[in-house]
Simulated assay, not measured.
Amino acid sequence: MDTKKVWFVTGASKGLGLALVKQLLNDGYKVAGTSRSLERLEKEVEPSTDFLPLEVDITDEESVSNAIDQAIESFGGIDVVVNNAGYGQLGTLEELTDRESRQNFDANVFGSLNVIRRVMPHLRSKKSGHIINVSSIAGLTGTFPGWGIYCATKFAVAGFTEALSAEIKEFGVSATVVYPGYFRTNFLDKGSLNLPQNPVVAYTEARNLEAAHVNDIKGNQPGDPEKAARVFIQLGESENPPLHFIMGEDAFGRAHDKIEVLQNELRANEVLSKSTTFANSK
């Protein structure tokens, strides 16, 4: 009897999602993978009875619902969900339009919520499962000029994953938020990273960081996506998966820096912080 878990992976045609799907299939898992382009997905992943390629608009609830139904019908169920689909949006808070900001939230936040909303009845009924939401180290520390909206979307992913973990625990379902650092994928390529439509020249730090990502960081990211894929699988097979998982040596360092900043500011402002308590409180 085949006891391997069935995976449902969004954003499967490139980046970490593609690396994960290929590794899962190589290891003998059954995988339903989604992409905005079915043609690209079928081009990237070799056809097999263990792989169900799905063209999905994650911002469309009906599209998401149909994909989940197809995966359950094809493989008998879903065990691990990886909400990986999304894209980067550069631009300072002043220069990004309302439309640019909302579109990034639609893909990075509401797309994952659509998947969660549609798959949870199935996971609740089987009283098992694991939802892995891909945030970013930019969802833990946001001091990157010109990345504010993207950071906000990834902070949101971290926040709702914490709430999700508490909500679904009673049904035997787990949730993990993954904070990747820089991995050598096409995330910094056009199509995965959008530049602001109306840049404001005065923001020199944002422009410099933008140029660094496009010209210097791209192609030199320290993280290996194939190793990341193996880590995702290990998380999916864990009996007691973590709620928070920092992925990558660079991300690990930035996480420690953020914790140190918080600890320092807590100590420096402890008296002022506690001065708000009612005088007669015990």
Rank of each mutant, 00 (worst) to 15 (best):
N66M: 10
W147E: 05
I58A: 03
E239C: 08
T176H: 06
L52A: 07
T153S: 15
V80D: 01
K274G: 00
S135M: 08
Q23P: 07
T97R: 07
E55N: 10
E205Q: 14
C151N: 14
Q70S: 14
A211Q: 15
R117N: 12
D250H: 06
A279C: 07
H130V: 06
K5F: 10
V115I: 13
N208V: 10
N280H: 12
K282D: 11
K30S: 09
L20W: 03
L243I: 08
V177A: 04
G28N: 10
E249I: 08
K127N: 06
R124S: 01
G248E: 03
N114P: 03
H244T: 10
V201Q: 13
K218D: 09
E42I: 07
V80H: 01
L164P: 00
K258I: 04
G28C: 13
G146H: 11
E210D: 13
E62A: 12
R117G: 05
R36P: 01
T176G: 02
K227R: 12
F252K: 08
G129C: 08
K190M: 15
V81I: 15
K14N: 12
P180W: 01
F105W: 11
A107K: 04
V214M: 13
K14C: 07
G11D: 04
G15K: 00
P196F: 05
E249A: 13
Y150K: 02
F51V: 03
Y150N: 04
T34D: 03
N240I: 09
V231S: 02
N186C: 00
K274F: 08
Y203S: 09
L113K: 03
A229D: 01
L93K: 05
P242Q: 06
T49H: 14
G139D: 01
P222L: 06
I72P: 01
H256Y: 10
S101A: 15
G15Y: 03
A211M: 15
T276S: 08
V200P: 00
A175I: 03
V81R: 00
L209A: 02
G86D: 00
A212L: 14
G172L: 12
W7R: 00
N83V: 03
S165G: 10
V173G: 02
D98M: 14
A255Y: 13
G236M: 06
L188R: 05
V231H: 05
H244E: 05
K22I: 07
Y29I: 06
P53F: 05
F144G: 05
E249C: 07
T59M: 10
S174V: 00
T34Q: 04
I68L: 11
T153G: 10
M1D: 12
N83W: 04
F51R: 04
F155S: 00
A202R: 15
G129I: 02
L140V: 11
S174F: 06
V231E: 10
Y179Q: 02
G172V: 13
E162P: 06
E170I: 15
Y182E: 05
A166H: 12
N240R: 09
G223F: 00
V109C: 08
V200E: 11
L54A: 07
S192V: 01
A175P: 00
I259K: 04
V64F: 02
E210Q: 15
A206T: 10
I131L: 13
E239T: 14
V45R: 07
S112G: 14
S165Y: 04
E205W: 12
M120D: 03
N66H: 13
F8D: 01
D50R: 09
V231R: 07
Q103H: 13
N114M: 03
K5T: 06
V231G: 01
K274L: 11
E239A: 14
